[in-house]
């Protein structure tokens, strides 16, 4: 999908993505010439079309996790997976609130979600994951339902 600023005849560039958690998503684009901004507001049906293809509007900023779509979509058993934790980078701290929030994620997908948040924190030089960090990651990465 491309967005064209008709007045400037310029392709608009992707700016950011929002996932409000109600099944919809929004993405904003800006004309590099006149700086006009628009927001594309997708309804749940359109959002699902994208999700079910396992792709991201605005492109991917982190590598796709193994079984990412399956683990996001399937109601699976708690002990289906053992996720290896990444020990290559600096250890990331989790605040009490963020740990509590993580505990609410179904165990079938929790290990993967934890890894995605940790990778996001590492990418952004963040040393402690807080609910605010989780919110930004969720929005930036399009983690609907996580």
């Amino acid at each position: 999908m491309k967005f064209l600023c008709i007045d400037c005849d310029e392709q608009m560039t992707f700016q950011d993505r929002q996932v409000p958690g109600d099944g919809t998503f929004a993405a904003s684009f800006e004309c590099p010439h006149c700086n006009r901004r628009i927001a594309m507001l997708a309804n749940p049906f359109e959002a699902q079309l994208v999700n079910s293809l396992g792709v991201k509007i605005g492109g991917r900023t982190l590598e796709e996790e193994p079984f990412e779509q399956t683990r996001r979509s399937v109601v699976g058993k708690d002990n289906a997976f053992v996720d290896e934790e990444d020990t290559t980078g600096k250890p990331i701290r989790w605040s009490a609130e963020s740990r509590e929030r993580l505990e609410r994620v179904p165990r079938f997908v929790r290990g993967m979600v934890k890894k995605i948040y940790a990778e996001y924190a590492t990418e952004h030089g963040i040393t402690e994951i807080t609910p605010a960090v989780m919110d930004s990651a969720r929005t930036e990465l399009g983690l609907e339902g996580m």
Binding site: A80, V82, D83, G111
Partner: peptide, 8 residues
């Protein structure tokens, strides 16, 4: 299972 998952 359970199935072991790593980055690969």
């Amino acid at each position: 299972g359970p199935l072991k998952v790593d980055a690969d």
